[in-house]
Simulated scan of single mutants.
Amino acid sequence: MSSHGILSDLQLADLVDQGVVIPQEPLADGQVQPASLDLRLGRTAYRLRASFLPGAGRTIQSRLTSDLVMHTIDLEKGAVLETGCVYLVQLLEGLKLPADMTAAMNPKSSTGRIDVFTRVITDGGEAFDQAPAGYEGPLFAEVSPRTFSILARTGDRLGQVRFRRGGHHPTQEQTVSVDLEGFDNGVVGYRARRHSGLVDLAGIGAHPRERFWEPVTAPDGQLVLDPDEFYILASRESVTIPLNEAAEMAPIAPEIGEFRAHYAGFFDPGFGVSEAGGKGSRAVLEVRGRDVPFILEHGQPIARLVHEPMLEAPAIAYGQVASNYQAQGLKLSKFFR
């Protein structure tokens, strides 16, 4: 067992009894993952005029004034969160971290693949997606659909949290490049269709792919990214996360500037491991063009996969129970059929 690293599923399950995770409702089935805990939307969404960070010494609730909040939305019956808008939702999970534990948050894979921009803020927060050691208080999710409007409800899971003891100690970094040679019938990816229908977060496999996505090809191994268009691509490399490690996708070179990947990227122990049914698993890349058209070439580096140790191996590795993305190649979000 390592003296520092990411908490495993067994350790995560104990955090409620220890008072580290404070849920407003009992944890739901499947909420505990091999190396992360899914975070659930609460009962009310605030439509904001703009994103914000509360800043040192200030609570999120104190910032929710009439100058910032345009209106409130009841999520218990379900509500549409529209593209181009910024919403803030208190999560059903709060935290009371011990002095030697930090927390990091990230969108779930299914969230990133529908181009929903989401990040977590804390009371006193001066950075997104981080809860410092000793933090005690609520968690709020900022949610901003970029391409598809979504139908969301209390309990839906757009993000996840990892808990870490002993600081961040990467063990290795793996460069991830893009595959533009094609999968089925020369298709190398998908581009989101603008002005498509609504994505119901309860509708797993309920949305026809062709209504929301158009396939793209890359003649001569090149793909031109159009400005502000959203693409689903796949890595050239297979990805394997051993049982004693977890990983996270990170930018490879922010200074490139002409595109970015969404990086909805926690990779659980067991992802891509043959014994867990993951032989040949690729990383799916959520890519958005920026200011000018940009040529992406086959094999071009596009992200980094940063590995770090687990405190202990999980009881159940990724893929040993029902999983949407084990052994994936080029794969859209679980909401599409």
Rank of each mutant, 00 (worst) to 15 (best):
G19M: 10
G19R: 11
Q160D: 05
G221E: 05
S235I: 02
M249S: 13
H298D: 13
T175W: 12
G270N: 05
A247K: 06
L10N: 13
G55V: 03
L139H: 05
T44D: 11
E308D: 10
H195R: 15
I114G: 00
Q61T: 09
V273C: 11
T175S: 14
K331T: 01
L88A: 07
R113A: 00
H298Q: 07
A315F: 07
F212S: 00
I232L: 06
L92Y: 04
L201R: 02
V188W: 00
G57P: 13
R211V: 00
M249K: 08
V321F: 11
T175D: 11
V120L: 11
H71R: 15
V120W: 01
E25Q: 14
K108E: 01
D156G: 07
V273Q: 11
R209Q: 06
R63G: 13
E297P: 14
F128G: 10
T175Q: 14
V16T: 03
L88Q: 02
G57V: 03
M1F: 09
R165G: 07
F148M: 06
Q300K: 14
G137T: 03
A276V: 02
A152L: 05
V187R: 11
Q160E: 13
Q31I: 02
I295D: 11
G42E: 01
Q11W: 05
R157S: 08
H307T: 03
Q174F: 12
T44G: 13
Q18E: 12
L37V: 08
Q11R: 15
F148C: 03
P254G: 14
K279A: 14
E173Y: 10
T217F: 05
Y263S: 08
H298K: 08
D184Y: 13
L158T: 02
V69Q: 10
N324Y: 04
P54H: 06
G124S: 10
G55Y: 08
P242W: 03
L311S: 05
L41H: 00
A13H: 08
D220Q: 15
T122N: 10
G189R: 03
V86E: 06
L311R: 05
P26T: 04
D100V: 09
A152I: 00
D220N: 15
G78S: 08
P227V: 02
E136H: 15
Q18R: 15
T147M: 12
H71L: 11
F335H: 01
V178E: 06
S323C: 13
P138G: 10
L311W: 01
G57Q: 09
A104H: 12
A56D: 13
A246T: 08
A133P: 12
F259G: 07
D100M: 13
K77Q: 12
V143E: 01
Y325S: 03
S235C: 08
I150Q: 00
V284P: 10
Q33S: 09
P242D: 07
R153C: 09
F335K: 01
A152H: 02
L68K: 09
P301S: 07
A35E: 03
S62T: 09
A202I: 01
G289N: 05
S51W: 08
D179S: 12
G221Q: 06
V176I: 14
Q160M: 10
P269F: 04
P269W: 04
